[in-house]
Design a protein around this nucleic acid. Structure first.
Lengths: 200, 200, 200, 200
DNA sequence: AATGAATGAGTCTTCATTCAT
DNA sequence: AATGAATGAAGACTCATTCAT
């Protein structure tokens, strides 16, 4: 009684879906098992979501919205371009670490069909990169980072970040991801900010 | 009729599979259409490959082997750490550009199931990163690149590279990917080599 | 159209399966034709039965349960060892005669795979023989039958009975099987009851 | 080299087929594995046998012919109705015991399709029963056995015999079948020979 | 809104059989 | 006679989705 009524049905379905999609992949998960785990009937899913595909999209949007909000807050909470970038990367890894299932969806399950890549995956990276771009742009304006194309830079920063998470997922999340934060930050900061490294 | 005898059957199947898997995704492709396009009977696929899954793995190995060979040759053909890194990244983008279908498989289709991520996708990035690591290590030894953990550096370099390709794929390959080579190289080289950037 | 709503789905599937398995054999029958004949969709079979194999097992259990109940009742309804044995054999032949399809499954289709022989076929003959053994044991105790190993005796009685049915099935059920009841009973009764053979 | 050329191809195919059909069942065996085990190409089977079905028929005929010859010889070698019957049953069990695979084919694999039951299985039991009938008839003529319908008697004798073998096969041939010979003979002989039952 | 039994189109895979060599 | 690569028809089973209740 207690566990069943925690959250409304839509939320329960999303949570169950996130868990299974992350663990077994989109095609490896059946809508029935999601319904079971969510404690609803098979048909109920279709009251809240038009199709299985729309369900994974919803799962992802939930995840993305939550991420974006946190990241924006985190970035605003500190000052200084370098500190902002550090915060962004560290927080990003922490968020991924706290929800490996969603991380997996983010990293691979959304790339199932060319259609999905073009719509959702694209939007996801766009949102992410907008934040990165913001930090980069501000850093350049402030003279903290070297001159560069913020868009291209964001693509590469995001790639490095993303691949670090993928490595961790491929390693079965067997080590603390957030421990890699400083390593990542160093690399990125040198890439974006490198200006005054003396001689050698 | 004309295309029927070009190449042996195994090769024809691999080519057809690469095309469809890349265009429509692993699950969006049926073994029958691969057989049709390859000009063989449905059952023939199973003479050469144990299952549909082993087929995509084979497609990928083919692609990876080809890539690795080219990249190694390319890197060896030039001298100087910076030149090697540039060559590596440029060649990588060129290879991806010349075979968008395989690029798509490489970037997403191999991540279909958690199983695949753990086995094949892992191996693929490992192979790629080994080359990158080699260049980074040599560069550090030679004093051309700054001191850093070559492994972690390779992860990030690979991530940036990969994401640049993914962007291109998500944009429907609508612009020449190789045109981005210098941008990527700059970013990476600053990240790995940044030592003597004068004042500001 | 008329037959559609007779009985629930599970029952309709079992009946259709019994018919086809009996007529065309297990491997000669497709799940689709069973579904068609039962007036259900192909997938519906798998709601009620885990696999085609579990379906034939279910068909058989149904048949066996029905048989056993009838035979036990029949045997209890009469008194005297000889009368019981006669009743058992007669009733057995009558039951087989009334459902030739199930008889065929019982006699041969359950022996399709070594696995089935070891599990289901074994259990079926065990159930049958337990009843026979009971009658034989009681007959011996009562002094009506000669001393013998009831287990081995049951094997042989069952064999004679079974082969009589098989003959009938092989002859396309072209004669009334129950007409053979007295002949069978005589043979068996002499075998089990013959006590005072003089001389030799 | 030595093993391969022992026997001609036809014989090798029959032997391999007997082994597999007996162990894994008719439908559980592929023609390819038979060809492999026989050391011939897949297509070669079809030079010697028209189809898979004709192959199992051939296997069976081989087995039956061999059996019949031995049984006839065995029966003729002794004198006296009772001795002949004993010899027949004992020899039958011994032959089955010496070739469990063929025994399994005989007992169940030939019953795969209604067609097979009607043609081959029928013929097999007919051959067997002819021998039994002969012994029974002679016994009756000689006054050794009681008056009865030899045909029906043979059906029942054959059934008892057959079921004893089936029990043994179902028990994984885990005990010496020939040890059951005397038990079987007693049962049968009482059934056929019992003449002077007093009274009742 | 919720259910869950039912649907049936869709797919991978097997394998007896053929035939060019 | 022999080969064995190739065929392609066939079939068990799955599962997203629907709809009567």
């Amino acid at each position: 009684m207690a566990r069943k009524r925690v959250g409304n049905k839509r939320e329960r379905i999303i949570n169950a879906a996130a868990k299974f999609f992350g663990e077994k992949g989109y095609h490896g998960t059946t809508t029935s098992e999601i319904a079971d785990a969510a404690g609803v009937a098979a048909g109920t899913i279709y009251i809240y979501f038009k199709s299985k595909e729309m369900l994974i999209v919803a799962v992802f949007e939930e995840f993305l919205g939550f991420h974006m909000e946190r990241l924006k807050q985190g970035v605003e909470a500190v000052s200084g371009s370098e500190a902002k970038m550090r915060r962004l990367l560290t927080l990003g890894l922490e968020l991924m670490e706290s929800n490996p299932s969603s991380a997996r969806i983010f990293l691979s399950q959304l790339r199932q069909s060319p259609e999905m890549i073009k719509t959702v995956a694209k939007r996801s990276s766009r949102a992410y990169k907008e934040i990165i771009e913001g930090v980069v742009e501000d850093g350049i304006s402030a003279g903290d980072f070297r001159e560069s194309d913020p868009v291209a830079t964001a693509v590469m920063v995001f790639g490095a970040y993303q691949n670090m998470v993928l490595e961790w997922v491929a390693a079965d999340c067997s080590y603390p991801l957030s421990a890699k934060a400083s390593e990542l930050s160093e690399f990125i900061l040198i890439g974006v900010a490198c200006k005054e490294t003396a001689e050698s």
